[in-house]
Design a binder for these strands. Structure first.
Length: 422
RNA sequence: UCCGCGGUAGCUCAAUGGUAGAGCGGCUCCCUGUUAAGGAGAUGGUUCCAGGUUCGAGUCCUGGCCGCGGAG
């Protein structure tokens, strides 16, 4: 184990090129079997190995460096692909594309999430209709008490998680998660963990954290084993949990940092406006030379705050989901297309994204959104391309600013300008 | 000119004579490791007009007006 730790953390997988003088922001490069990723980078969500509403050729236009798919949602497809792969290898299909890349239809670095988030989203989250970040409306304590621990869709044990969904029962644990992720073939994979809810108590989080740490060990063990067998390299990230509790976050950081992971994910839930605080508890205990991925974050402000604290990777559904719902991102803030339906100006002034360059106006986009099913699909595709491009471009600018020692200035300037639209 | 059918929210339509509703649109808001191509909320009415019957009329009766279809 100790040997592994030494070898794996120095494999040239992650190189830090520059550290910002005034903040903890850093510029780096991740080298994966399918290409390099310049960090900080936004990882675009492609849950079922496709970016919703986009064709493979669209993805190339969006400055996307890397995408993340999901173990839980590709479970069946991944296991069924066993036969497919065998058949194809028999018929001499010499291309060694991974399952993910085949489905994605374009070549670029990929990641997969382990299914740990679904322990929350399909359990507590679904049951109580809350997200992993406590929202603006303060939750009544009595309400919080009444809903705590109601997780009728899942059963969690030391071995893993039983999902009881849509009348189907299935079990996912660290070993199976690693097996599925191996099959999916991402360049970077995550250890199986338990994402808890922001309303879970200290005691619950403590127990959950013990499980997550146990599963981290097992994910690592199984991954090392399968690597020996197949010879194929996948980089594995461990995940820090601990919810909203400082002592647990620190404990988790230290523990995950002590294991021979290739990178560190920071997962779990956050209290309202407590994200920076939580990241600050975690970062000091992480190895400086390993990449850090803030799971499931974030919004524009979150990105700047996290980069400032030394985060290298993000992923979030915000750009894509909100695009589908008609929200457009611009440097002056985001706006809902319905509010600007009569304006014949580009989605964003002087935007260089392919959609704006093609002359799609706000009025046109609105008309498409309200048109036939086919037109709506077009609208969602345009909005998705624009938003993804916007986020990727923003990260590009952030990288540039770190390079020039101007991150803080850039952050302040950008956030000042990024206000809800006039 | 006659016969028939209809006229209710911005639009399309509901409502055995008993508190006028729904869908869509418009408006406000939400979306953070996607069971989300989604969700929440507020608003919205001289029921074409004028009479009549009735405790009570969107509903029944009479007469107008308007629209659609048919016949001449």
């Amino acid at each position: 184990m100790k040997q592994n730790k030494q070898n794996r953390s120095r494999g040239g997988f992650f190189k830090i090129i520059k550290k910002d003088k005034h903040t903890q922001a850093r510029l780096g490069v991740l080298s994966t079997p399918h290409g390099k990723i310049e960090t900080p980078s936004y990882v675009i969500v492609a849950t079922r190995a496709e970016i919703k509403c986009l064709k493979p050729s669209d993805i190339k236009k969006t400055k996307t460096q890397v995408v993340i798919a999901n173990t839980y949602h590709l479970w069946n497809e991944a296991l069924n692909s066993k036969l497919e792969t065998l058949n194809k290898s028999k018929t001499q299909n010499s291309k060694t594309k991974t399952f993910l890349l085949k489905k994605l239809g374009t070549k670029l670095p990929t990641m997969t999430d382990s299914g740990g988030f679904q322990v929350f989203s399909l359990g507590f989250g679904k049951e109580n209709k809350i997200g992993k970040i406590l929202n603006a409306h303060p939750v009544d304590n009595r309400l919080a008490k009444s809903i705590i621990h109601r997780r009728k869709n899942i059963r969690i044990s030391q071995r893993g998680v039983h999902f009881l969904l849509d009348g189907k029962k299935r079990f996912l644990g660290p070993k199976l998660s690693m097996q599925i992720q191996k099959k999916l073939g991402a360049d970077i994979v995550f250890a199986f963990d338990e994402c808890t809810s922001p309303l879970d108590s200290f005691d619950y989080n403590k127990k959950a954290l013990e499980r997550t740490h146990k599963w981290a060990q097992e994910s690592l063990k199984y991954k090392v084993k399968s690597e020996k067998l197949s010879g194929k390299r996948q980089f594995l990230f461990g995940i820090v949990q601990g919810g909203r509790y400082k002592s647990l976050r620190i404990k988790s950081s230290k523990y995950i940092a002590s294991l021979p992971f290739d990178g560190i994910g920071i997962g779990g839930s956050f209290g309202k406006d407590e994200m920076v605080k939580t990241i600050k508890w975690v970062i000091p205990h992480l190895p400086k030379e390993k990449p850090r991925h803030l799971l499931g974050i974030g919004k524009i402000e979150d990105i700047f705050n996290a980069v400032e604290q030394g985060i290298d990777l993000f992923d979030c559904v915000i750009p894509t989901r909100e695009a589908r719902h008609g929200r457009i991102y611009t440097k002056n803030g985001h706006f809902d297309i319905s509010k600007f339906r009569n304006i014949s100006i580009p989605l964003e002034k002087e935007c260089k994204c392919p959609v704006c360059k093609a002359g799609i106006t706000r009025r046109k986009l609105y008309e498409l959104f309200k048109g036939s099913d086919k037109e709506k699909q077009k609208a969602q595709r345009h909005a998705t391309i624009h938003n993804i491009w916007f986020f990727n471009n923003l990260l590009e600018e952030i990288r540039k600013s770190i390079k020039n020692n101007k991150f803080e200035q850039f952050k302040n300037k950008f956030l000042k300008q990024f206000r809800p639209q006039p």
